[in-house]
């Protein structure tokens, strides 16, 4: 059985090295204060950043809405398109069992199951996870019985 959680939003990835993200983030926060009601955790629901003509074209938005199931719980979030599945799990869902090692596909510390297949969450864009089932190390327990990996 999957539980439905209220929709939430995710701010852009925290990466200080990128020139373009600072103004973007500032704009996000400014906008989110104005629209208070739809804002969670400092982010905004997709679309509010855009001008009226762009707002119609979802393809042009820097953020997108995605619904996925994480360890049996259905979640709907709006993510900055740059957010990795790993950051979504760790920073916004608080599932810190998947680790960030290299952040480049080379160590496997971020391994999760997507629809039953193991993948690197660091190289997976969260925005691509529409409709999938994600299982993290936290989700491997069978009731109170811990999985050997745990």
């Amino acid at each position: 059985m999957s539980t439905d959680l209220p929709e939430s939003a995710v701010p852009p990835p925290t990466d200080s090295s990128e020139p373009s993200s600072a103004p973007t983030r500032r704009t996000f926060i400014a906008t989110s204060t104005a629209v208070g009601g739809v804002v969670l955790a400092g982010g905004v629901i997709g679309g509010t950043l855009l001008g009226p003509e762009e707002a119609g074209a979802a393809a042009a938005a820097p953020s997108s809405r995605v619904s996925l199931t994480v360890n049996g719980t259905r979640r709907t979030v709006t993510v900055d398109n740059r957010t990795s599945l790993l950051d979504l799990l760790r920073e916004y869902f608080g599932l810190t069992g998947s680790k960030k090692g290299c952040n480049a596909g080379a160590c496997g510390a971020c391994t999760v199951l997507v629809d039953g297949h193991r993948v690197n969450a660091c190289l997976t864009l969260a925005v691509r996870m529409e409709g999938v089932e994600v299982t993290t190390i936290e989700g491997l327990a069978d009731g109170d019985q811990l999985h050997p990996l745990q």
Binding site: P12, P13, E18, S21, T24, A59, P62, L125
Partner: peptide
């Protein structure tokens, strides 16, 4: 990472 638009076909 620079911002980008995303579309699924």
């Amino acid at each position: 990472m620079y911002p980008f638009a995303y579309t699924r076909v």
